[in-house]
Design a protein around this nucleic acid. Structure first.
Length: 397
DNA sequence: TCTGGGGTCCTAGGACCC
DNA sequence: TCTGGGGTCCTAGGACCC
């Protein structure tokens, strides 16, 4: 019985590593993925990081820091394929694998059995197997809890393993900045710093009641636990993560949003985009076999202020025309005149399996007509590609 | 050409019901 | 007559994560 049964595996600079694994000429030079027009950097390789390039940074800023950085466009299909293969490697170690994104997973090796060895030996086996099969590196944190394992993998980067045994947890945790804790972002970190709580140790030695007043009931209690490394959340392999529902927990919402190439105040342009986004979302709903009752739109203005409006319908729907009609109502209710709009989004929330949706007879033919039309479009899209079939108002003039 | 796109969860107030 | 909970749903905003 091991005292450190949780592994957190994190690919090193995943998107950048995948994009350059067949490019020996790019191994030693700064590379970033994404960050084009109005975009942010999705990933930077380690040579680029030496110049200060980081993911989530604007492409403009990255180029200023490193003018000769090589910019690659992301290939999401490839990322998904590589990710699936990597997750399969993990499942050769234990069935208890929780994928939390394309490039990260928790493994509970307590019940491993499939492969003998201590957690460290299993971690090294994972690392060498991923490297042999996918030619990318990863780092692993090994600990008794998922939160400590996650922090350990970060410390292990790149291409390393770190084990934090239970008796070392506070020594490992307490010197870290509070911003390292999961759930503490820029705002909460600043708030805690203002209170003089700079390190994880400071948080650990602060009364829970004080923390709750400062950052809210839930987060306050949570942070106190994390600061002592005493979170007990289990690895839950049921989580579908990025691989769609299926046998995992169902998605709670699905949405799509897009930033315009340039800001617009043209209602027609906005609505065309909304229709495109709606069609994309409802197709995903139908593919997943779910429908949702609440339609929400997001509007981001030129000054980056962002608002959301939502409406709950009488019944869940996956029908493009119904979602679009609700979205247009929400948009028009804003009463915008000449506002410059940067981004619009459409989201469907409160998802339930489609078979649980009771279609009232009174809704009648029209909705069923639209629903049938959607399904015909889906079939055509599967055969000819999604570019072949789209609403008439999206056709180029 | 500052600031993407996919999500989750929490908070808080009001409505409404018991 | 006055006061008072709790619970749920809906909506808007915000923080956070990858």
């Amino acid at each position: 019985m091991t005292s450190t049964p949780i592994l957190h595996v994190d690919m090193d600079a995943f998107y950048a590593s995948v994009m350059t694994r067949d490019r020996p000429d790019l191994q030693e030079v700064p590379v970033m993925v994404g960050g084009g027009h109005r975009g942010v950097v999705l990933a930077a390789n380690y040579p680029a990081r030496e110049y200060g390039v980081r993911s989530a940074m604007t492409g403009t800023r990255a180029r200023r820091l490193c003018p000769h950085v090589v910019v690659l466009q992301p290939d999401y299909d490839l990322f998904t394929t590589v990710s699936r293969s990597v997750m399969e490697v993990f499942r050769r170690v234990t069935p208890l694998v929780e994928a939390i994104s394309l490039d990260e997973a928790f493994l509970d090796v307590r019940a491993a059995g499939r492969r003998a060895g201590s957690p460290v030996e299993l971690a090294e086996w994972v690392r060498s197997t991923v490297h042999d099969e996918q030619r990318i590196t990863c780092s692993v944190g090994v600990a008794a809890s998922i939160s400590v394992a996650k922090l350990a993998s970060k410390r292990a980067k790149p291409d390393g393993v770190i084990v934090v045994p239970p008796e070392e947890v506070t020594r490992f945790l307490h010197p870290l900045d509070v911003g390292e804790l999961y759930g503490v972002g820029e705002k909460t970190r600043a708030m805690l710093h203002r209170l003089g709580l700079v390190t994880v140790g400071d948080v650990a030695h602060t009364p829970v009641a004080t923390l709750r007043r400062a950052v809210g009931d839930h987060l306050g209690a949570h942070l106190h636990e994390l600061a002592w490394g005493s979170d007990v959340r289990a690895v839950s392999p049921g989580r579908a993560g990025v691989f769609g529902s299926g046998d995992g927990t169902p998605d709670r919402s699905m949405g799509a949003q897009e930033t315009f190439g340039r800001d617009t105040d043209d209602r027609e342009v906005v609505l065309r985009e909304m229709l495109k986004l709606t069609a994309k979302v409802t197709r995903r709903l139908r593919t997943a076999g779910v429908a949702g009752r609440t339609v929400a739109i997001t509007v981001r203005f030129a000054d980056f202020t962002t608002i959301t409006r939502s409406r709950t319908l009488a019944e869940a729907t996956d029908v493009t025309q119904e979602v679009y009609a609700a979205a247009v109502r929400l948009y028009d209710a804003l009463g915008l005149q000449r506002a410059r709009i940067r981004l619009v989004g459409v989201r469907v929330e409160g998802l339930v399996p489609r078979e649980e949706v009771q279609r009232q007879g009174v809704l009648g033919e029209r909705e069923h007509g639209w629903s049938d039309a959607d399904r015909a479009v889906d079939r055509a899209a599967r055969r000819f590609g999604s570019a072949a079939v789209r609403p008439a108002s999206l056709l180029d003039r």
